[in-house]
Design a protein around this nucleic acid. Structure first.
Lengths: 398, 398
DNA sequence: GTACTAATGATGGTCTCCTATATAACTCTC
DNA sequence: GAGAGTTATATAGGAGACCATCATTAGTAC
């Protein structure tokens, strides 16, 4: 038998577990009293207190002024110090680079975007990434040393080690050790992942698929892709190649939205990247040619989606990516086709996060990574680069 | 936020966790000394001893004679008492009913099978199940009261509550509360699951896919189905309808192996259930008509399989079910078609468990269920219907 | 029969959690 | 504005579970 995860252990391990439970409980809640924490964690009051004191000393938790106007003695309230550390999410697409700076709760502090060109040489793209990150940090009043982790979402097939195997839309992205390159740029952990997968994660953590355990995310735009959340976790597959239903010939996703791009209604002079949008807009206005093109497109879309739904039986299918702006045009025909085939029809919704979904997903991914670090039995128990609280939360002697 | 699983807790919880670690370590190993256990679990010797004493008193562990011929004082050796409890696995197919009795390690003690008829009325089928179970128990020298759990695999769509929604091959299986009916038959926990899924589980626990975390199992025979193991766990989906790629029109699995059944080479008088086998045998002998039929069949098989592989990127695809006997004929064409489409080609192997895979999977499923019970934080901590060891393993005062 | 080896068994100490009780702070009512 | 009522805090005592250490024991090797 292979080595198993020793889940029990020392007394200190028990304390670590309880501390993590407290942190998890505190997170998301705005602020909580000791009694509330004790009840929600199942610990006794004195124990909760001790844990909180320890966490305060380490800078993970801080006290906030008690709520006034309540009966009885006012309860001390504690809050997770989301500003104890910072994360950066990056979205590196063919035509754009986005950066977002966030706290440990995933709250966005600053955001930047700058255009990019698919064919630009590698150095230019890397320089643009560095600039976007620098701008974002400056906006947030932080330096690169404040970052605990950076997560990157990019188009293409990303290997297990942060290596970009290939990307259809960025020629320079071919057998490239992107993780390594960015690792030289940032003095912290760098995670690289496929953009569709990260978008799926964002949608499950804070979008329409919140709290769903099984989600199929359709990343539909100039490029097509999918991201799968299975049992609440991002599914990567054995070789990190999961979600590539694009390659199934029978689904006909491979050439992207050709039906929309090549519709007869598209004017000759229009730049190719705007063609699909034009067709979708015309379909919304009821143009029959455009509607026909949309029907052909959704037919193909439905084949791959049906395969995913039949295999995984997700709770919800989310339509995201650039075309999700046209969800009103795409969803009805997609729904009717799926209903014809699916054994159990899942919910079907458009993304609510829009263009930001990949950066947000990157941030959520980074948070997940940090969480996992803390939970490791042999972890340096809650002691990442955390500096003591700026204002010591101990009893103020005034 | 919904209620989260409190992972820490009491001191007793820590003990529970450590006891479970010890049990997990002990399981699978033939017998282990205290020192070995202490090292493998990470606990200290005295603690390990205390845990072992507790487990012995509860009947989970027993002492075996020390190994002779070693240096130093002989170490006491302990063993997981697999015979402390018993499980039953059932495989209810259209044409057969199988029952297997197993110990807590999943080792099969006795096995029965009896024929069935697809169109038989419900009562007959239930009576046959009861008889199969009784025979099996008698063979093992046990009574129905010795069973801790019964797991059932059957064809058709099985709902989350053990309800059979419908089954294409057993007419009586329609909107039937099978879990409830069998719950009256057996005085213990009864689990109902789709047979393909259980076969997939068996294959990952003890078959060719042992230790793989992501597995696609193809259940190929008179009926077609799939079972998915994702991240080491059986994937059921939100509505327990996962794996039903059969329904995808583009894959053409819906009508089963029509290409093999209707091949021109099949003699007229042959009973329909033997037709496919005849074609496969002819193909093995090189008959061109049969080979052509096999090619058409594997073409279809490859479409659905490719969809699953592209979406999930499994480590291995296992070909199981009745036709896995003809894997030598089916695998080569299937492999070549998959290689053409898949981004990363998974391993592709035939099942090694044969006809027993569903009962074995049912047993493994029952074991998994029991394990899960023990791990629950609020569990009655390791106290299922376990009777004290027949021979008290304490120090014998002679 | 003596030396060596490796496991056993017992003792004391530390850590973490729990229950219970006394104390403190604030609101509401008269 | 004083007392009653309410809710939290703080502290003390006790039990459970783990660990390190050391003397003891039961074998093998020479």
């Amino acid at each position: 038998m292979s080595t198993m995860p020793p889940m029990g252990g020392d007394l200190s391990r028990l304390r670590q577990l309880n501390a993590l439970t407290v942190i998890k409980t505190l997170r998301g809640a705005e602020a909580a009293t000791l009694s509330a924490l004790a009840e929600r964690t199942g610990l006794s009051r004195p124990s909760t207190k001790e844990v909180i004191d320890e966490l305060s000393a380490m800078g993970w938790v801080e006290e906030v002024p008690p709520a006034s106007g309540t009966m009885g003695r006012p309860a001390r309230r504690y809050r997770f110090r989301a500003d104890g550390g910072h994360l950066m999410g990056l979205d590196i697409g063919a035509y754009h680079i986005r950066a977002a700076l966030a706290d440990l709760d995933g709250g966005v502090i600053a955001e930047t975007r700058r255009p990019a060109h698919p064919g630009a040489p590698l150095e230019d793209r890397l320089a643009a990434i560095e600039q976007a990150a620098a701008t974002c940090l400056a906006l947030g009043g932080l330096t690169i040393a404040d970052l605990w982790a950076v997560a990157v979402g990019t188009t293409g097939l990303v290997g297990p080690e942060g290596r970009v195997i290939m990307s259809a839309s960025i020629p320079a992205w071919r057998d490239l050790d992107l993780g390594g390159l960015l690792g030289e740029m940032f003095p912290c952990r760098v995670l690289v992942e496929n953009d569709s997968r990260l978008a799926a994660l964002a949608e499950t953590r804070r979008g329409v698929a919140r709290d769903a355990r099984d989600v199929v995310f359709l990343h539909i735009g100039r490029r097509m892709g999918t991201g799968l959340i299975i049992d609440g976790r991002l599914h990567r597959g054995f070789g990190a190649a999961a979600g590539e239903i694009v390659m199934l010939p029978e689904a006909g996703w491979r050439d992207g939205p050709v039906d929309l791009n090549d519709a007869a209604i598209v004017p000759d002079g229009l730049p190719p990247e705007d063609a699909a949008g034009f067709t979708l807009a015309a379909a919304r206005d009821g143009d029959p040619t455009a509607l026909d093109a949309v029907a052909r497109f959704t037919d193909k879309l439905a084949v791959g989606t049906a395969a995913a739904v039949l295999l995984l039986d997700p709770e919800i299918v989310v339509l995201g990516g650039g075309f999700s702006r046209s969800a009103d045009v795409l969803l009805p025909p997609l729904r009717s086709r799926l209903e014809r085939v699916c054994l159990r029809m899942p919910k079907l919704s458009a993304s609510t996060l829009g263009d930001e979904c990949v950066v947000l997903g990157a941030i959520d991914y980074a948070i997940e990574h940090l969480d996992q670090l803390f939970f490791a039995p042999d972890a340096p128990a809650l002691r990442p680069p955390v500096r003591p609280a700026t204002s010591p939360p101990g009893p103020d002697p005034t």
